[in-house]
Design a protein around this nucleic acid. Structure first.
Length: 654
RNA sequence: GCUUCAUUAGCGCAGUCGGUAGCGCACUUCACUCGUAAUGAAGGGGUCAUCGGUUCGAGUCCGAUAUGAAGCUCCA
């Protein structure tokens, strides 16, 4: 048997060898740091016996792939510790995940104290250094073993495996768990771990099934790496928009106003208005949109035509009772049908198309109470909504333009590298969730693939994520904790025009159904602001800052000059203020820095005499003395061009 | 909607065994008139989220509700 190694060399053996033996054969040192083997691209246990020719890479502790194995083993150690301390707990599943691992138990809830106890028990198990061994059983025997051990969830898992399967188990000093592996050779290999939290999870992710208790943890090869990870989590917390946004006084929430209904303070409002004015001018002046203004509510009849009444009633705020009241109203969860009726207001010729409607549209969605989060999941929000009514022959071109506009917006905000593109498809096995014929869905999805390939945008395909009326391209971004949200969406709709009897007159004088694109340019303003807070940790590009310049007089004597400077800045369209408090200049600078202001202008005797300002910025520190006109020229350019200046590295002092 | 945890001054937090509430920042006033990350002093501010229960007595123990956080489920 020939084993091809990573460096191109070949090892030959006459008999079956475990990966561990081969590693040892290469060098004792390698065997000490080996975690697993990658055989023809598949990650396997070190104890796996190789019997055929193959390519082998020994995965050592420093390899990122080793983390997966370490974490998986850590989750088994966790399971053993829980079984020792809580013998009545039933084990279910416990995989490694991106940032660590978890294990779900059928048990009473775990408190933080429980987690600490479990963590201590895990350390004990690791110190005991049990060798981890693997064995397989035929399906029937495997089921019997798990029944004997009183683990009904494991029995259910095995029952889903094929009849003739050999079921693999891992044994660590008597604790046996059903598992496909791979695992480390010994519990000793788990060197740095921490249990981070516990929460509830449903068995098999189904809210109708048993409620389980999930324990999350993370594990690394070295203590320093674990410490770094925990430090990153701390940094994430500091950037968290829900904390930083409140701290910076951008928004707040009030108990008596309600869940998912944030209030924007003047600072937050100013930022949102800057985004909104930018987007509106951009769409209207450069991308051929016309603006509409439509009601925030409508009779239920409208939503019955659109299909939302059947597909989305639970998510709407409805006024009145259908059985009792003659008319039932609902706040709008979307803008589509309103803009369709704007289209239908007059008869359209093929020459009128494409018809690009845009609206800064406030929407209401009655999300479940547990779904709300800061500014990213709210019950009332405002989006840069748009609908394009186009001829079929214009569809591809217009769809492309929508994506181009989205891309332009992302680039301007400096976040184009932070997104992933998703082709959200229908689910052919769940037909009742969608309207229209399968053939239309498949065709449309192919069109969208072609467009993405032509634009050279990498994307992934998600089954079952489509709107009920058509597939879409979602542009998603991750928050500081790694959770994904949709920022921008462009949706292909060849169906709703029929429901609303929309048409145009073609060259031959015939009525023809248009296609519709539902799209956002920069999506939801609340969510975008949240994203920007986290992306920039509150240090926004100058053009977006609610306060762009603060004038700091050295003492009250120079207040008048400071006010003059401020007035001139404001006249030039710069958001400026004066810090007139009778404080020392050092104190004012400290506060302005903590407020993450882009520019401070220090003015005193000298500046007043020369009509200059002493510039201090977030980007370059002390920028020296400039004439006021020179500074105004520079900053207005920076604002107009939406320049993103490079931040100066700083150590934050407290 | 589900599970767990939390809610004390505008914000961040302490509050021991159940005995009637404190710190820092902020705010107000006064003095200082200052040159690049905290000048000093004095003062005001609380129905301890809300409602109910246990108790001679509840910020503290119990229950319900509201709001928030993490996770699950959901997100047309």
């Amino acid at each position: 048997m020939k084993i091809m190694l990573k460096d191109g060399s070949v090892k030959e053996y006459n008999e079956a060898k475990s990966i561990f033996e081969i590693a040892k054969d290469i060098s004792e040192g390698l065997a000490r740091v080996a975690c697993a083997g990658e055989v023809d691209g598949v990650l396997l246990d070190l104890r796996t016996e190789l019997t055929h020719d193959c390519e082998l890479t020994i995965i050592t502790v420093t390899d990122p792939k080793a983390l997966h194995v370490i974490r998986h083993t850590a989750s088994h150690v966790l399971a053993e510790a829980v079984k020792r301390l809580f013998p009545n707990a039933k084990v279910t599943i416990g995989p490694a995940i991106d940032e660590g691992f978890y294990y779900d138990f059928d048990s009473d809830p775990f408190s933080r104290e429980d987690l600490d106890r479990i963590e201590a028990e895990m350390k004990k198990i690791i110190k005991e250094g049990h060798e981890i061994t693997r064995f397989t059983l035929p399906r029937d025997e495997a089921i019997r073993l798990m029944e004997e051990k009183g683990e009904p969830y494991k029995v259910e898992l095995i029952q889903d495996l094929p009849q003739d399967a050999q079921i693999s188990f891992y044994d660590q000093g008597g604790f046996v768990d059903l598992c496909a592996g791979p695992h480390l050779m010994s519990t000793k290999g788990v060197k740095a771990f921490k249990l981070t939290s516990s929460s509830m999870a449903y068995w098999r992710g189904d809210s109708n099934k048993a409620r389980l208790q999930r324990i999350y943890g993370t594990a690394y090869n070295k203590k320093e790496e674990l410490a770094q990870h925990l430090e990153r989590m701390e940094d994430a917390k500091r950037r968290d928009h829900n904390r930083l946004g409140r701290e910076m006084e951008l928004f707040t929430t009030v108990d008596v106003i309600g869940q998912g209904l944030p209030l924007f303070t003047p600072k937050g409002t100013k930022m949102i208005m800057k985004l909104q004015r930018w987007i509106e001018d951009l769409e209207d002046n450069e991308w051929g949109y016309t603006r509409t203004r439509t009601p925030l509510m409508a009779k239920s009849d409208l939503y019955k035509i659109s299909g939302h009444w059947d597909h989305y009633k639970e998510g709407m705020f409805v006024f009145g009772d259908e059985d009792k009241d003659k008319e039932v109203y609902a706040l709008r969860p979307m803008t589509c049908p309103f803009q369709y009726y704007v289209y239908k207001n007059s008869q359209k010729s093929y020459r009128d198309l494409p018809c690009r409607y845009s609206e800064t549209s406030t929407l209401f969605r009655n999300e479940d109470s547990g779904e709300m989060h800061g500014l990213t999941r709210v019950r009332q929000f405002t989006i840069s909504e748009g609908h394009l009514i186009v001829r079929p022959d214009q569809m591809v071109e217009e769809f492309k333009n929508c994506l181009a506009l989205a891309k332009y917006c992302l680039e301007t905000l400096g976040v184009s590298e932070d997104v992933t593109y998703h082709l959200s498809k229908w689910d052919p096995d769940n037909r009742e969730k969608y309207i229209g014929e399968p053939q239309v869905w498949e065709e449309t999805q192919q069109h969208m693939r072609d467009i993405m390939n032509e634009l050279g945008i990498p994307y992934v395909e998600d089954v079952g994520e489509a709107a009920f009326y058509g597939p879409k391209i979602d542009i998603n971004a991750k928050n500081v904790y790694g959770k994904e949200d949709t920022m921008i969406t462009v949706q292909w709709d060849a169906l709703l025009a029929e429901q609303f009897d929309m048409y145009y007159i073609d060259q031959n004088g015939d009525k023809v159904r248009p296609y519709i694109i539902h799209r956002t340019s920069m999506g939801c303003y609340e969510r975008t602001l949240a994203w920007l807070i986290e992306k920039y940790a509150g240090k926004f590009p100058t053009w977006l800052c609610a306060e762009q310049v603060r004038v700091l007089p050295i003492s009250e004597k120079y207040e008048e000059y400071a006010n003059d400077v401020c007035k001139k800045l404001k006249k030039a369209g710069v958001d400026a203020t004066v810090d007139n408090r009778s404080e020392k200049i050092g104190f004012k600078i400290r506060e302005a820095r903590l407020d993450k202001l882009p520019y401070m202008l220090v003015v005193g005797q000298q500046e007043e005499a020369d009509n200059t300002v002493s510039v201090r910025s977030r980007f370059a520190g002390d920028e020296g003395i400039k004439t006021l006109d020179c500074f105004i020229g520079e900053i207005t350019q920076e604002i107009q061009n939406k320049t993103i200046r490079k931040e100066m590295p700083t150590e934050e002092k407290n």
